[in-house]
């Protein structure tokens, strides 16, 4: 293959991949405006009636509220605990730092379903049956490795002597942290938080084992809707979730830059 041909081939694959990756998202968005209940593409007349019906789906609001609570709380906790641990690891004063770092990231390698059944048995054996708390604890295990990985990577490029330098120049210790460390680490922190939140909000395989009849997260409800009665209301809901994701991504791109997230994110 000659060089121009090879480059042409690479570009064809990249554009093909881009189209292929976007296809399901575009289809969902198009189907949500379907004028009929059978996912017709809105040729000739778009309809917003499916959006109006999202709120009437059985059990929708409690599921959304539960998912947002669990995702927000577990992400906040994971950011706090993960960042502190990452600082200890990156400063190099922790005995066995590399092994601890590997351990903190290791749940990422683990099939979600296996974590789910392991926690189910564990909580059952302890007689712990509060679904909300069980979900929060489980999601902490889901989110913490994302934060640990991104923050360890981010902090390994941070020069801790800068904090000392700021103190020598007259900053108080908290002031030095706030003025030197926080701005330098903000991009990693934001990336970590974004991926942790999304991982929790979209989690199905861990949550499914820890819910009860009244405590169901949004992904579980959605899969239930799809299996029972798929209609364009689900497409409308999916489109709204996609819309929110786009807003999050655009905001992150403005603040951090996607090409930097490609290095530190997933």
């Amino acid at each position: 293959m000659t060089r121009p041909l090879a480059i042409l081939f690479a570009w064809t694959m990249a554009l093909g991949a881009a189209l292929f990756l976007l296809a399901p998202l575009m289809v969902i968005a198009a189907a949500s405006f379907s004028p009929t209940p059978v996912f017709d593409l809105p040729v000739g007349g778009a309809s917003l009636r499916w959006y109006a019906r999202i709120g009437q789906m059985d059990g929708f609001w409690p599921a959304l509220s539960l998912s947002l609570q669990i995702a927000a709380l577990s992400t906040a906790l994971a950011l706090a605990l993960g960042t502190l641990a990452a600082i200890a690891i990156a400063q190099g004063r922790l005995p066995g730092a590399e092994a601890i770092g590997t351990f903190l990231v290791s749940p990422l390698m683990m099939p979600g379903l296996v974590l789910g059944i392991a926690l189910l048995q564990y909580f059952r054996a302890m007689g712990f049956s509060a679904a909300w708390s069980a979900l929060l604890l489980a999601h902490l295990v889901v989110t913490l490795p994302y934060v640990a990985r991104t923050m360890i990577a981010g902090l390994s490029r941070f020069d801790f002597t800068l904090v000392e330098a700021a103190r020598t120049l007259g900053c108080t210790y908290p002031g030095a942290i706030l003025k030197v460390m926080v701005p330098a680490l903000a991009p990693s922190f934001l990336t970590a938080g974004l991926f942790a939140f999304l991982a929790s909000f979209d989690n199905y395989p861990v949550s499914i084992f820890l819910t009860d009849v009244r405590t169901k997260t949004l992904p579980i409800k959605m899969l239930q809707y799809i299996e029972e009665a798929p209609d364009p209301t689900l497409a409308a809901l999916s489109t709204l979730i996609l819309g929110a994701t786009v807003i999050l991504l655009v905001a992150s791109d403005r603040l951090v830059g996607l090409h930097r997230m490609a290095g530190t994110g997933q």
């Binding site: 991949a17 990756l21 976007l22 399901p24 998202l25 189907a31 959605m222 798929p230 786009v246 997933q266």
Partner: peptide, 20 residues
Amino acid sequence: ACLFLPLAASVIVKAFAWTI
């Protein structure tokens, strides 16, 4: 963006789209 948007999108949403 074509990589990140699908990555950030829910797996259930994408699988559902393929069923359609």
